[in-house]
Design a protein around this nucleic acid. Sequence first.
DNA 1: TGCTCATATGAATAGGTCTTCAGACGTCAA
DNA 2: TTGACGTCTGAAGACCTATTCATATGAGCA
Lengths: 138, 138
Amino acid sequence: MNRSSDVKGLIDIDGCSVRVVDAPRVATVRERMPATQDLDDTADVFGLLSDPGRLRLLVSLLDGELCVCDLAAVTGQSESAVSHALRLLRAHRIVAVRRSGRMAYYRLEDPHVRMLLDLALAHTEHSELIHPERGEQS
Amino acid sequence: MNRSSDVKGLIDIDGCSVRVVDAPRVATVRERMPATQDLDDTADVFGLLSDPGRLRLLVSLLDGELCVCDLAAVTGQSESAVSHALRLLRAHRIVAVRRSGRMAYYRLEDPHVRMLLDLALAHTEHSELIHPERGEQS
DNA sequence: TGCTCATATGAATAGGTCTTCAGACGTCAA
DNA sequence: TTGACGTCTGAAGACCTATTCATATGAGCA
């Protein structure tokens, strides 16, 4: 095949030649890179946790189920916004519903997400995060 | 003060009356809710991890520093896109730079983010994530 | 039945984000 | 100095996302 890894500072990636500095290192890191699908799924999960409204909903559900209107009250959002958010989270199996009459009780269903939340909150509550655009080092 | 928690199903939140079902539970969950600032910061961090390009960059940096062009090669992005992404991550102190001549070597700086990445990847590589819009339960 | 209630949904709008392109900047080598 | 190089940046466009409003659905109650 048309490999050009022998060309100094140039390697083939996905069929097109790219400039690199540390070719062997690049090869190693590329091999260890998780599958595209896995990375995209992981990015999706992080994306679901990246909205303050949804994050609040999930944190509220950490120790038990709540109905939509209580979730709206706890998180300070409109019931419509909460419903839309829950629909998204439900579609990704992160929360699950229990229906009782006209009430809908949601619970946190994904243990993986629960761990991410626990880990993230444990850190942010103890150490202050640094805010953007505050100057950088030398 | 104008508390109306005695009104059946109605409580005061931030000065305006809201309908709730389980008032004491709502109060408890609200008390346990982390500070607004902490939640917003946490959502920001998740947001930074929610882009496949940035996620790839950070994963690439998990075991050591790499220069911009190698990061572009490893992650399959343009050098400009990589530079923009690194700028964002740098502003949030998630990565740090070491400059040597005209080269810029980036490394993963935030141990908190490293843990989140490790946890997230450990799970996605072993268990398949469910994709959206596949129908739900009863 | 009709009415109210709790939730769900669709459409539309406003705001944000990623990528690309063109060019700037500082460094190195000749 | 000049030119090539590696990286950085700003502006522009296309795309995606969150919220709101209005309305629908479907359960309980009279």
